[in-house]
Every structure is written in C-alpha cells, then in structure tokens.
C-alpha cells in the first residue's frame, strides 16, 4: 500500500474526506484486507489515547496554585512607581559638572599663557563654541583635544544613571 493510500485511510478515520472520497475509501476497504487491518490499528490507537488526559490532576493545592497567579496579576497591574528623588550621584554631578568646566578653562588659560614654545616647536590652541579645546604640538606630532563635560541639564533629563530603567 503506498503512502498516499495510507494517509487517505487516516483521513477517512478522522472524517477529513469529502462524502465522495469517503464512499470511495469505504468500497476499497471492502476488498482490501491489509487496508482494513491498518485502519483497525489506527482506530485502536486513537481509542487508547483518547482518555489519557482525563486522569491527569494538577499536583498543587487550589489555594497555593491560585496565590501565585493572583500575585502575578497584581504585580503586573501595579502602577509604575513615581519618579524617585535625585540620587546621591545626581546630586554630586551638580557640583562636579561646573567644577570640571572651570578646571578645563583654567588648564586652557595656563596653556595659552604658559611658557613660550622652545625653538623648533609650534603650538596651537583653540577653544571652540562647542566647548572643546584643542592643543597641537607640530614638532612632537601630538594633538590634545579637551572635551568639556555635557551641560548639567542634559544629564538631569536623562535620569539617574545608577538606576536601571
């Protein structure tokens, strides 16, 4: 018996065939003992496993099982907590940011005013509108770029960095 016929037998058992196809299979079964035996095997297997789940019981007491569900529902329905007060790190940042900006300015001033370049050296310093400060030593092939700390407001809006959102 080819596989297509085997699957057709199964479809007949599962009532997945049209009326015409089902009649065709029924008349084939009347003449083919192998097909009849295979159908019987499929039918026996189906009947054997049908009541399987009826005997399965949840192995937890009603109250315990429900308590976990209830807890999860309540957790998911809990409103999000209000924004917390500024953490200690954010408070420190209020002092550190302007302090570092001042430090950058002082360093820039010292470098600008500082001792003249020795023979063979050239220096260049600049302070752009973005707050970045550049110092170049062409002789040493070195460039220093000082980036000032972002403005305090940018960080405050982003929220405390020590708290995972």
């Amino acid at each position: 018996m080819d596989h297509e016929k085997q699957l057709k037998l199964q479809s007949f058992l599962d009532e997945e065939l049209s009326e015409a196809e089902a009649r065709e299979v029924a008349s084939w079964l009347a003449k083919d003992q192998e097909a009849t035996l295979l159908l019987a095997e499929l039918r026996n297997t189906r009947a054997a496993i049908a009541p399987f789940e009826a005997g399965i019981r949840l192995p937890e007491a009603r109250e315990f099982y429900w308590s976990k569900i209830e807890r999860e529902i309540e957790r998911l329905e809990k409103p999000a907590p209000a924004k917390e007060k500024t953490s200690w790190l954010a408070a420190w940042r209020k002092i550190l940011v302007p302090a570092s900006a001042v430090a950058a300015l002082v360093i820039a001033a010292l470098i600008t005013i500082g001792p003249p370049a020795s023979p063979g050296q050239e220096t260049e310093s600049s302070y752009s509108d973005t707050g970045a400060f550049t110092y170049r030593d062409y002789d040493a092939h070195a460039t220093l770029v000082w980036l000032s700390y972002p403005e305090e407001n940018d960080l405050a809006d982003a929220g405390p960095i020590d708290k995972v959102q």
């Binding site: 399965i56 009603r62 099982y65 209830e70």
Partner: peptide
Amino acid sequence: DMGAFEELVARHRDKIYARAFS
C-alpha cells in the same frame, strides 16, 4: 471580580495543566 476568576481557575485548572503536561 477576581473571586469569579478564581472559581474559573479552580474548575478548569486540571484540564489546562493536563494539556500543558501532555
């Protein structure tokens, strides 16, 4: 009504668990 839902859970819990276990 959470109490009504709890009763539904109690009635159908075995069937839902059995399906998951299968």
